[in-house]
Design a binder for these strands. Structure first.
Lengths: 155, 155
DNA sequence: TGTGAAAAATCTGTAAT
DNA sequence: ATTACAGATTTTTCACA
């Protein structure tokens, strides 16, 4: 029961989730004020949100440049051999430099979000991807990041 | 001094950052064990990493479907009027549904990562983007997310 | 679910080495 | 940097409506 529970979130849950998305270290006391519930009740709510898989974890957000990965790129990939099973995502999972993997509706089959140290490292990553997943690649290099991971609610 | 300090990270800093990326709530006691440093020293280190802008914040990671935003899409945009100043990122900042904005090297000028509630909401978002930033759009819809925000170190 | 209060753990700051 | 200590804060647990 660590995932999937279609029970929709009520107003309080949404408020808690929003607060924790902005600051993953928001204390129960603050969450209590925000929601109007008691501290204990808030704790139970948060525990349930975690158990239901609504909140999947807590992460420190890191400056990519500061940790030596200043070069980001989107890489669209398409299997070379149509007959071959589509296990590209599984093959690429865990490969250093690959942050995310999506299947997409478009010319390419998959889209990867990657982050590496240098153009040279990107070249190496591309080679590794092509060999490992037997795919062709189309790379879009990121020149500047204006904002990332912004969280705006649809009202 | 909340940002930008080109001092490279040493091994301990890297270990601390890695641990906090995996779990933003890792306690100082645990970080102390991991790094081998005393709790006090670890506290100072983490404070400095935050002050230097290496760690920019802490966030709860949320299941997009659970919070009512099951439809993700990458939207490439290109200003319609060449003469017009390139202020698209500024115009789009904070717009509900837009998560990230990059300038990219490729056919398009910018790439947006978006997340909305439905195809209808995506249609509305596209309209809002075109009107607000005066751009043409090329949308790639995400069909499935295999993994996201994975953090693998280049060894 | 919810509340409230006590117990345990964690964080923060200071001081001496 | 390390250890040690004290006070404040936070989290956890328990009893109960």
């Amino acid at each position: 029961m660590t995932d999937n529970d279609q029970t929709p979130l009520d107003g309080v849950d949404r408020a808690l989730v929003d607060a924790l998305r902005k600051d993953g270290r928001t204390t129960l006391a603050v969450l209590s004020e925000i929601s109007g519930l008691s501290l204990s009740a808030v704790q139970v709510r948060v525990r349930k949100l975690e158990a239901r898989g609504v909140i999947t974890g807590y992460r420190a957000v890191v400056n990519a440049e500061a940790v030596g990965l200043p070069l980001a790129a989107f890489i669209e990939i398409t299997p070379l051999d149509q007959a071959q099973e589509d296990d590209a995502p599984e093959r690429l999972r865990g490969m250093p430099g690959i942050e995310s993997c999506y299947s997409v509706a478009g010319n390419a089959n998959y889209l990867l979000v990657t982050r590496v140290a240098s153009p040279r490292a990107l070249e190496e990553l591309l080679g590794r991807i092509r060999r490992t997943a037997k795919v062709s690649t189309r790379t879009t290099v990121v020149l500047q990041t204006y904002f990332e991971g912004q969280m705006t609610e649809p009202g």
